[in-house]
Simulated assay, not measured.
Amino acid sequence: MCKSDKAILLGVSLIFIAGIIVGQTFSFEVKLSDLIATLVAIITFYYAFQGLQHNKRIYQNSIKPVIERFISVDNEKYVYNFQLKNYGTGSAINLKYKILSDAGELSHKDLQQKLLLFGDMELEIGAELGISPNSSLNIITMKMNNEASFTEVIKYLGTIELHVNFSSIQDDVQDKVFSLTP
């Protein structure tokens, strides 16, 4: 039995009980006014129930995080930045991510060691945190000194995926997969 059927059953039961309490007895003699009153009550309960369900959906959407990637690549200054941005109105909490390459899962340290093999660079790899509404979390930020190494690093990042798992304040868990290249 679905929720709307339960609401209708509850409405009919309440009308029947109200009739008994008020002292009116229901006879098998059905009047048109009784049918109209019962129908109006059922319709009222149905629309009230639908309104509550609609309000619940609106509330849940109003506190929902919307996580998307933001990548900036400056080929002239050899700068790369990968961010996760929360475009939603709710916080993304319990944020965890896995870095997956063709060889399998990479830890933060493994990724850092692989990237540093490409040459001299300034490198920062972000930690797992929550993301509040309308804010971002830097995952990978790097600046290199030459174009050849920078091009090779961007190619390598194309072979990596970021698997992100997070939840909202209502414990609505979401999983997303992002490519690290534009």
Rank of each mutant, 00 (worst) to 15 (best):
residue 167 S to G: 06
residue 159 T to V: 00
residue 155 K to C: 09
residue 166 F to Q: 01
residue 181 T to C: 10
residue 161 E to Y: 13
residue 147 E to Q: 09
residue 172 D to F: 10
residue 163 H to I: 15
residue 177 V to A: 13
residue 135 S to V: 09
residue 133 P to W: 01
residue 169 I to S: 12
residue 133 P to V: 08
residue 163 H to V: 15
residue 165 N to P: 00
residue 137 L to I: 12
residue 175 D to L: 00
residue 147 E to R: 02
residue 145 N to S: 14
residue 181 T to E: 03
residue 168 S to F: 05
residue 158 G to V: 04
residue 143 K to T: 10
residue 177 V to D: 12
residue 130 G to T: 09
residue 143 K to A: 15
residue 149 S to M: 03
residue 162 L to R: 04
residue 152 E to W: 01
residue 133 P to Y: 03
residue 135 S to H: 08
residue 177 V to Q: 09
residue 160 I to C: 10
residue 139 I to V: 13
residue 133 P to A: 07
residue 135 S to T: 15
residue 140 I to Y: 04
residue 132 S to W: 11
residue 151 T to V: 14
residue 170 Q to L: 15
residue 163 H to Y: 12
residue 158 G to C: 08
residue 181 T to G: 11
residue 155 K to H: 09
residue 143 K to S: 12
residue 180 L to F: 05
residue 143 K to I: 12
residue 169 I to A: 12
residue 178 F to P: 00
residue 159 T to W: 06
residue 142 M to N: 04
residue 156 Y to L: 03
residue 151 T to N: 13
residue 171 D to P: 02
residue 167 S to E: 09
residue 131 I to H: 01
residue 165 N to A: 14
residue 174 Q to G: 09
residue 137 L to V: 09
residue 144 M to D: 01
residue 161 E to C: 08
residue 158 G to K: 00
residue 130 G to C: 08
residue 137 L to D: 03
residue 164 V to S: 07
residue 172 D to I: 08
residue 169 I to D: 11
residue 169 I to T: 11
residue 169 I to Q: 07
residue 155 K to V: 07
residue 153 V to P: 04
residue 133 P to K: 02
residue 140 I to D: 02
residue 150 F to Y: 05
residue 169 I to H: 01
residue 154 I to W: 06
residue 175 D to I: 00
residue 161 E to I: 10
residue 166 F to E: 06
residue 143 K to E: 08
residue 175 D to F: 13
residue 180 L to H: 06
residue 172 D to N: 13
residue 172 D to C: 00
residue 153 V to L: 06
residue 158 G to N: 07
residue 162 L to D: 06
residue 162 L to E: 07
residue 143 K to G: 12
residue 174 Q to R: 09
residue 138 N to C: 11
residue 172 D to A: 11
residue 132 S to I: 14
residue 152 E to G: 04
residue 159 T to K: 07
residue 136 S to L: 14
residue 156 Y to G: 04
residue 136 S to Q: 15
residue 167 S to Y: 04
residue 181 T to M: 10
residue 140 I to T: 03
residue 145 N to G: 00
residue 159 T to H: 10
residue 155 K to D: 13
residue 154 I to S: 10
residue 176 K to D: 10
residue 133 P to M: 05
residue 176 K to V: 14
residue 181 T to F: 03
residue 162 L to S: 10
residue 165 N to H: 11
residue 162 L to N: 02
residue 140 I to M: 01
residue 160 I to A: 05
residue 146 N to S: 14
residue 146 N to K: 04
residue 172 D to M: 02
residue 171 D to K: 00
residue 132 S to N: 11
residue 161 E to R: 01
residue 143 K to Y: 07
residue 139 I to H: 01
residue 150 F to C: 00
residue 145 N to D: 14
residue 168 S to N: 05
residue 148 A to S: 11
residue 160 I to Q: 05
residue 167 S to N: 07
residue 134 N to T: 00
residue 164 V to W: 01
residue 176 K to Q: 09
residue 157 L to K: 06
residue 156 Y to Q: 03
residue 171 D to R: 03
residue 178 F to V: 06
residue 162 L to F: 15
residue 155 K to G: 10
residue 142 M to F: 14
residue 154 I to K: 03
residue 171 D to C: 00
residue 176 K to M: 12
residue 166 F to L: 00
residue 134 N to M: 13
residue 158 G to Q: 05
residue 179 S to A: 15
residue 149 S to H: 05
